[in-house]
């Protein structure tokens, strides 16, 4: 605590502040409640749920629903659990995010520091991809994937997500690099660094914040995608499609506790990415390079 209270420019009244916190608390509860319901119900036996009272804490705590969701639940016709689909999703999302981010960074670099006649048009067209609804491209995309021999495979899904993600990652990096002092690039040119050296030695080391933004955005979108997964997944469907199959299965009793556990499993990676990547969201990387 500071020894003396700083007299700040903005005086927010005690009542106003209390009001703000109460409102925020209500919002937080509103969002946390469903998660709470999912969590507690994934930890109790099915009988406790069917007895009613979804809000109560488990009387008999159990991890069995989690184990079932992960490794033995009926997905479609096979009792495989979500595990293989989780792996599919990982195999899809990691390369897709990596490729899209790298290409976006390179695009942003070229579009700001190595401009050529028509660069604005190229950027405009790339931006356009951000606004095309997924449904429109389903059939052409299926044709292209078929021609490339990538239909129903993970590489096919990676390609689709790269094509869609590159508009966003380019947008992020272009705007970030537009504020990057061109004099630094010129200084590096005089120092004798070429295209890639300038990128890797000068630009990339200070691109942390925007990379975090790009990765979070792409990871969340690609991981959560259902439409492309269902349409082009074939034998290698991602987690989202599998979860749907688990929950929608028409045979037998509905095992809500397993469904809840599966849903949390499906959401977990994006949560982890937020928490881990957010830590690297450091500010002030450009400090001192040019006069303030």
């Amino acid at each position: 605590m500071a020894p003396a209270q700083q007299d700040t420019a903005v005086h927010t009244g005690r009542i106003a502040r209390t009001f703000i916190y109460v409102v925020l608390l209500v919002f937080a509860l509103f969002y946390l409640l469903p998660f709470f319901v999912m969590l507690v119900n994934s930890l109790k036996p099915l009988s406790e749920i069917t007895d009613g009272n979804m809000m109560a804490l488990p009387r008999a705590w159990t991890l069995e629903p989690w184990r079932q969701a992960w490794s033995s639940a009926q997905i479609g016709v096979q009792p495989t659990g979500l595990k293989p689909y989780f792996v599919n999703s990982l195999l899809m999302v990691v390369p897709a995010v990596a490729i899209t981010t790298v290409l976006g960074a390179l695009n942003g670099y070229v579009l700001t520091k190595w401009t050529f006649p028509g660069h604005r048009i190229i950027f405009g067209l790339l931006l356009f991809t951000c606004f095309i609804p997924f449904q429109i491209v389903l059939i052409p995309m299926a044709t292209v994937l078929g021609k490339l021999g990538l239909a129903g495979s993970i590489p096919g899904l990676i390609l689709v997500h790269c094509v869609y993600g590159i508009g966003f990652s380019t947008l992020y990096y272009r705007n970030y690099y537009a504020a990057f002092p061109t004099e630094l690039v010129r200084a590096a040119m005089i120092d004798g660094a070429g295209f890639f050296r300038i990128f890797f030695r000068i630009m990339l080391p200070v691109s942390g914040p925007i990379t975090v933004v790009s990765v979070i955005w792409l990871f969340t979108n690609i991981w959560n995608d259902f439409l492309f997964g269902a349409s082009f997944g074939g034998q290698s469907q991602p987690m989202t499609v599998a979860l749907n199959n688990l929950v929608q299965s028409s045979t037998g009793v509905k095992e809500y506790n397993v469904h809840f556990a599966g849903a949390i499993l499906a959401a977990l990676p994006t949560l982890v990415v937020y928490i881990v990547a957010g830590r690297y969201f450091v500010r002030g990387l450009m400090a001192g390079s040019v006069k303030g």
């Binding site: 040119m189 005089i190 400090a287 390079s289 040019v290």
Partner: peptide, 20 residues
């Protein structure tokens, strides 16, 4: 001729120091 091959050195108005 490329800037790096002219054997010149330049001091920029904004200094342009590499921040990293």
């Amino acid at each position: 001729v490329h800037p790096s091959k002219r054997n010149i050195a330049m001091v920029f108005q904004s200094y342009a120091l590499y921040p990293n």
